[in-house]
Write a protein that binds this DNA or RNA. Structure first.
Lengths: 232, 232
DNA sequence: CGCGAGCTTGACGTTGTTCAACTAGAGTGG
DNA sequence: CCACTCTAGTTGAACAACGTCAAGCTCGCG
């Protein structure tokens, strides 16, 4: 029997198992699962380090993580932010032997590190499963690309509006219209200075689009925010 | 027997067939190939239109194409430029029923439009083949992402340097240090105004980094260009 | 010959970065 | 418990980067 602690990690009802068992036999999945390692990360801890040896596939059971690119100069760029449950695969993990970016926990997170070789074995035997996982990964890429496009075309107003909407809809969903992010992280996501973020957020507050107390930001007028996101 | 015209399309020695037959039986591939359509596109012609129904997978035998995102305002953003032979798959084509960006020929190009259903059948039967194709696609995404990162972090100097290096190394390789691109396209790639491109290129010329006559650009000092690309 | 698209240049205003000074809160060690 | 330090946040001023506008240019094409 599972102990209470192990049960907290949800091996019996985990989302990854549920999704996998749509395609593969529970026994095959169980064999694969035996090769994986359960880990907890606290807010701020680095899960994968840019430039480090790739740790294979990662399943984020619960929590919120950011994909960061770190420059030699020391500054960071956040490529995307995702919440669990989600498979974190793709260019960083599927095929490369070295991580091309870092993955850092933004909230306390629980993950499973999956064994690449065991995964490949499972995938080769179940192409429909592989296809479903690739599709899942592509969705994450697509979200990231739309953020890049907003970044390429819009001024800081529009970029920050896009980011606030993204965080509301895709990350902090299911908790009303408010969430907690630092100005520094918004700056790293929007690729601008933190001073500019502060000024922009203050302007949004003056105009009644958002409200904030400390790090907690609340969206008041989402229609207007969407218009700013579109028009730049 | 193949006619001379058909032979020009290279069905016997095409790169896609060569690559595919590392994984699948020639007979299976031939069956798949029967479902595909050979087409030629002239410089400037649109191959896939953003918002249009997805045309499935595309193999670019020869030529150069750009992936464009078009804004309501009418302005364009070039996400990436690739040369054949290359499989153009990924988020745009693998799974979505609607194209999320346009693909346009920058030089005269020859392509095969592949049938999605026939491809899926082939891939499901040959997981190693699917894996190889996904890896190929991910590489293209990775290149695009590095361009995005340069765009997010660098000033126009660095962005244009990055783009010139990308074009030299990945697109117009095998033709020395010179190539032909319009200022407008560089501007759409670097996400800045065409005036800014002109000023930057002139500055690069004054500093002896590049030389140009009309649309033909030649890289003179590649080390310096790489330094600008890195440092912004 | 005239037209339009792309290219070029300079002036000007806006946007955004950098810098400096200050405040507030969270750890840390005596 | 209190200083000390470190990080994040805030504000304003000075400066650089960039886009926009206007004008004139060249080239290819009908």
């Amino acid at each position: 029997m599972l102990s209470r602690t192990e049960h907290k990690f949800g091996c019996e009802d985990c989302e990854f198992k549920k999704m996998s068992c749509l395609y593969v036999e529970p026994d095959s999945f169980e064999e694969f699962r035996q090769q994986s390692i359960k880990l907890s990360f606290s807010k701020g801890e680095t899960i994968f380090k840019q430039g480090g040896k790739s740790g294979g596939l990662l399943f984020l059971h619960e929590g919120i993580v950011k994909f960061c690119y770190q420059y030699d100069s020391g500054s960071n760029y956040i490529m995307t932010i995702v919440r669990g449950p989600k498979l974190l695969g793709g260019a960083n993990l599927f095929f490369k032997s070295v991580n091309i970016f870092s993955i850092t926990a933004m909230e306390d997170s629980r993950v499973c590190m999956l064994d690449s070789a065991a995964f490949m074995k499972l995938a080769i035997g179940n192409p429909a499963y592989l296809l479903a996982l690739v599709e899942n990964t592509m969705d994450m890429f697509q979200d990231a690309i739309f953020n890049f496009i907003s970044l390429a075309h819009n001024h800081v107003n529009g970029r920050i509006a896009t980011i606030l909407l993204y965080l509301h809809k895709n990350v902090y969903n299911g908790q009303g219209y408010s969430f907690t992010v630092s100005r520094k992280e918004i700056a790293e996501f929007a690729a601008c200075s933190h001073e500019n973020v502060i000024n922009t957020l203050s302007r949004f507050r003056k105009e009644g689009i958002i409200e904030f107390h400390g790090k907690e930001i609340e969206i008041i007028n989402i229609e207007l925010l969407e218009e700013i996101s579109r028009k730049g």
